[in-house]
Simulated assay, not measured.
Amino acid sequence: MTSTRCAVCKYFRRRCPPDCIFAPHFLNDNQQRFTCVHKIYGASNLGKLLQDTPMQLRAVAVESLYYEAKCRIQDPVYGCAGIIWSLHQQIQIAQSQLARARAEIAFLDANVAVEEPTPNPGEPVVQQSGVDYGLDDPYDFWFY
């Protein structure tokens, strides 16, 4: 015989009413989800919160509470704020690296612009291809 009680009613060993506010969000097959949320917020507070939350937002609220509860259990001091802080630090490091890379690119672009000769007005522009080795044939250096 399979139980039709939700995880909350199963946890409290009571009959699950047809209009149970917890049933859509805490299914029977995922007891640890409710246990985690119950450990941090308590069933009474959770029930009040769900009743005060509009029906269309309840699933999102339960997901958020579950995530926050898991984080608080893993890190009792900082919880999800510790994860947010860590991600913020990673963003700052990446922004700093990006700024350094952009500065280096700008520096290299400026050096290339200085090294390239600018043609005089009226003088024809000659395009050079390849590398100038100072030899007639670029492959002559293999034979020296």
Rank of each mutant, 00 (worst) to 15 (best):
T2G: 07
S3F: 00
C6E: 03
C9M: 04
Y11N: 13
Y11Q: 13
R14K: 15
C16G: 09
P18C: 01
D19V: 02
I21K: 03
A23M: 06
A23L: 08
F26R: 07
D29E: 11
C36A: 09
C36V: 10
H38F: 06
H38Q: 14
I40V: 15
I40L: 07
G42W: 03
A43R: 15
A43V: 14
A43M: 13
K48N: 14
Q51G: 05
D52F: 04
T53W: 03
T53H: 02
T53Y: 02
T53V: 03
P54Q: 03
P54S: 04
P54Y: 01
Q56F: 07
L57A: 13
R58D: 02
A59N: 10
A59H: 08
V60D: 10
S64P: 01
L65I: 02
Y66T: 07
Y67P: 00
E68D: 10
K70Y: 00
C71G: 06
C71Q: 08
Y78V: 00
Y78P: 00
C80V: 12
I83N: 04
I84K: 12
I84T: 08
W85E: 13
S86R: 12
L87R: 14
H88Y: 11
Q89N: 14
Q90P: 02
Q92Y: 05
Q92I: 02
I93N: 11
A94S: 11
Q95D: 11
Q95F: 04
S96W: 03
Q97A: 08
Q97D: 09
L98R: 12
L98C: 07
E104H: 07
I105H: 08
A106K: 10
N111Y: 04
V112H: 06
E115D: 09
P117T: 03
T118F: 03
T118H: 08
P119D: 00
P119G: 01
P119L: 04
P119W: 01
E123W: 05
E123T: 14
E123D: 15
P124R: 12
P124Q: 09
V126T: 15
V131P: 06
Y133N: 13
Y133A: 11
G134I: 10
G134Q: 08
L135H: 13
D136C: 12
P138Y: 07
F141H: 15
